[in-house]
Design a protein around this nucleic acid. Structure first.
Lengths: 152, 152
DNA sequence: GTGAATGCAAAACCTTTGCAACTGG
DNA sequence: CCAGTTGCAAAGGTTTTGCATTCAC
């Protein structure tokens, strides 16, 4: 039995997902999406651009932004806003949240426990959420990057 | 019996909170903080600047950013990142989360239920959060602004 | 007195836009 | 064929920086 994964499992699937939101499949979109799938460290638009451009030199920044918006719209990636300056993008569409290390700037994925119930919110009737983002801030202990790995 | 409020209840208190993070009290910081306390609609740095400047014409944008960072550092305000373009600031330090309306751009505070338990997260031991942000996205039904108030 | 904070203007970023050329369905 | 997409370059908006001056402690 095939599981319905939140990511596009083939280019045809990607084309379908784009089409169902009234958008077209292009070589650039396919390439940017694959770049994001390989780059799991929550890159900024610029980082996606640089990496994708190396294999497709004519790619433009405008197209990267266009594509990122398109992929967000059809639910294939998430936009992650943790810093003041630049948005980041995440191709992991399993339910999870983000831990942002204020020391080294890295972002770690944190999974939910399986028995996750509803969030205990007093949500007024006139607010209808389509998406929930949970982000944590603090210090990680990444042995390679985080300068606080030996403190406390 | 006096409750220990998360906001600074007096200028002396503000001075103390700044000092305990190694920062100084200035007329600008006091003024910007009071502006934020009155402007409860999650203003951007620019909106804080414009409003604060009207009562303190010599105030500069650089000082507003400096002050916002200082207030965030000593825990008197929160930085809210929901959009790609500009950060917003929140002086409500009671535990709550934010609902961002993708239609009209407004941000609504949403309270937690009183019996709120722990978040069901599989948090690795090396990640120590100091802050949790929960943000929701969707459509509100603000009768004045939201163009979707009559749809569905 | 001394280091921190300010104001100003310029610089540095990040993101969006306009438009002619191109292309996918 | 035609609306959607691209690439380029320029514009727009937000945030940061450098530096001389001022101010808080």
């Amino acid at each position: 039995m095939k599981k319905d994964l939140p990511s596009a499992t083939s280019d045809q699937d990607l084309a379908h997902k784009l089409a169902s939101s009234g958008m077209r499949m292009t070589a650039q979109r396919e390439h940017v999406y694959h770049t994001l799938l390989q780059q799991t460290d929550h890159p900024t638009a610029d980082e996606v651009y640089l990496r994708a451009k190396s294999a497709m030199p004519e790619l433009s920044m405008a197209t990267v932004y266009n594509t990122l918006d398109a992929l967000v719209k059809c639910g294939l990636i998430k936009q992650v806003n943790v810093e003041r300056t630049a948005s980041r993008y995440c191709s992991n569409m399993n339910e999870h949240c983000h831990f942002f290390c204020e020391e080294c700037g890295s972002i770690h994925d944190v999974d939910f426990k399986k028995d996750k119930g509803e969030l205990p919110l007093k949500l007024p009737r006139n607010l209808v959420p389509t998406q929930v983002d949970i982000s944590l801030r603090g210090r990680c202990a990444d042995p390679l990057k985080c300068p606080n790995r030996n403190r406390n």
